[in-house]
Design a protein around this nucleic acid. Sequence first.
DNA 1: ATAGGTTCGGTACTATGGTACCGAATCAAG
DNA 2: CTTGATTCGGTACCATAGTACCGAACCTAT
Lengths: 145, 145
Amino acid sequence: MVPNQGARSSLTSESRRATSLTIGKLAAAGHVGVQTIRFYQHRGLLRTPPRGEGVRHYDLEDVRRLRFIRQAQTAGFTLEEIRELLDLNAGEDRSRARELAMARIEALDAKIADLQQARQALRRLARECADGKTGPCPILAAFKV
Amino acid sequence: MVPNQGARSSLTSESRRATSLTIGKLAAAGHVGVQTIRFYQHRGLLRTPPRGEGVRHYDLEDVRRLRFIRQAQTAGFTLEEIRELLDLNAGEDRSRARELAMARIEALDAKIADLQQARQALRRLARECADGKTGPCPILAAFKV
DNA sequence: ATAGGTTCGGTACTATGGTACCGAATCAAG
DNA sequence: CTTGATTCGGTACCATAGTACCGAACCTAT
């Protein structure tokens, strides 16, 4: 759909050729399963290198993309958004990239605040629910905020 | 399965009777859809009140449970864990409740740290990818940690 | 050169947390 | 007392992010 795989890569064709991984090695390098690689290829997140007599060969750029995917997932991007980011990587659309980043930062701030609140509530619960006291813990009341 | 619905409720039978909600009102009170209520009932998170001639009637305790479910989800508990917490609510097993709370706090701490790291990375990206500069943004390099 | 591990490409299944749709019964307002 | 909205209980479907399994081809080490 978007033919930018490696075309505008930041890697020279030198370093493209420098490594050759099978799909299994690529998967290991990204701490994912082989099925996951294929799944990402299917979703347009990773290229499917040409198959010239034999198996497909992957390189360091693929490893970088794969690691990026995992980190971006941690940041809360969906695979669809990550696909867009990867497509954007090669292009000139700085404002779109910024837009995605800023939106995610806002969402992260909201989420972090939520989690910190939840953490407080759980600490309170754990304290109130200490052994020694008797009767049921006030679980339902844990989040009375 | 676990017959604790209201038996040891913190509500008196007084306040149990004090309110009568239809499923639609209950859903509205918890900012969820009617289907979601039924889904939670099916999963054992909410009771299905007796149906004596007509529609089922819900009360404030149900609203509290529903709100607890949503808060606990924010805290990262799965519905299965929330079911356990709700069952625990009526019982005496303080150590199990503490265990669940402490485990979740640890997971929350890890997650919050991850999100904060991701936030830093995105801020860096947004800065480096500001308008004015030329060429593609270093998106793939965003998470170089 | 052959046995055992990988890869290929495909379809199917999983878990989680809902949503949608259905016909029939029931309720609430005019 | 009719009309329109809700409820009931059921089955089916959805999105997200994978994971499992398959037979056939291929690759590697002995």
